[in-house]
């Protein structure tokens, strides 16, 4: 019995633990995963604090459905509209993928705002989470730019005219405005160059920026931790009665920065 167990142990060692050790030795990936998963959060965190993860899921849904759409979409004024019709009407479940991408964008934006509202309500942007907040605001801005650039791609009337207005809006900015409008429209009229440029922004530049920002955002939330609801009676970091323990427990509780957090 004991021998069998040892053999099984050997197989586990060889097939699972050894490769993991090999990877961990070179990348720290296993320690990193443990660091991410096996940490404590305040015991009073609850549903309100799932909005950030929900936003992440909405974004990943956009990434996946967007990648599938990109396989069938043609960023060219002569064929963009047809390819959208083709995706929606002919492709197996194409309507679902496009519908999820179209509505996922709205869900993503709503969740961005809800998540920001929750963080604001909880005062969670305060020390030491200032950079967490800043990356979050930048994510909100890039997220809305994703909506702005993606709106043109179906190349229908709604898309075209909303973009005409959108580019004109950018044109009213002082100093950079005319340059920005020129950059966005790529010429006197909105056409093939515009579409290709917006496609690149929507598919490469902005998603890349969002992925990078999410990386920083997640690293920071793991490093700094999430806050308790501010009204919670048992919130982490709450004010303690000033009285020091007396009697037999005197001196057992360490306070302050020097090792209390270890």
């Amino acid at each position: 019995m004991a021998k069998r167990k040892t053999r099984r142990q050997q197989i586990v060692d060889l097939a699972v633990l050894a490769p993991l050790d090999w990877i961990d030795e070179r990348t720290g990936a296993v320690r990193g995963t443990k660091w991410f998963l096996f940490r404590n959060v305040p015991r009073d965190v609850s549903w309100a604090q799932t909005l950030g993860f929900a936003t992440l899921i909405a974004f990943l849904t956009q990434t996946l459905t967007g990648a599938i759409l990109a396989m069938y979409y043609k960023p060219d004024p002569n064929s963009a509209y047809e390819s959208i019709e083709h995706i929606t009407n002919d492709l197996t479940l194409g309507w679902l993928v496009r519908g999820m991408h179209r509505w996922g964008a709205s869900v993503f934006v709503i969740l961005l705002f809800l998540h920001m509202g929750r963080v604001f309500l909880f005062g969670a942007y305060k020390y030491p989470r200032e950079l967490q907040w800043i990356t979050g605001v930048l994510l909100l801005a890039t997220g809305m730019l994703m909506g702005f650039t993606g709106y043109l791609l179906p190349w229908d009337q709604t898309a075209y005219w909303a973009t005409v207005v959108g580019i004109n809006l950018n044109g009213t900015a002082p100093f950079a405005g005319p340059w920005l409008a020129q950059f966005l429209s790529s010429g006197p009229e909105i056409g093939g160059d515009t579409l290709a440029k917006w496609y690149a922004l929507h598919m490469l530049l902005l998603p890349g920026a969002i992925f990078a920002l999410i990386g920083v955002h997640l690293y920071l939330v793991t490093r700094l931790g999430v806050v308790s609801p501010p009204w919670s009676k048992e919130q982490a970091g709450r004010e303690r009665p000033v009285a020091e323990p007396t009697g037999a427990r005197a001196g057992l509780v360490r306070r302050g920065t020097e090792g209390g957090a270890k």
Binding site: R39, A236, A261
Partner: peptide, 18 residues
């Protein structure tokens, strides 16, 4: 100091993220 108290509390009283 406040943040150290927070970390201390999370470590002692918190629940596992996973």
């Amino acid at each position: 100091e406040w943040y150290a108290t927070y970390k201390d509390d999370v470590k002692k009283e918190g629940k596992g993220f996973f």
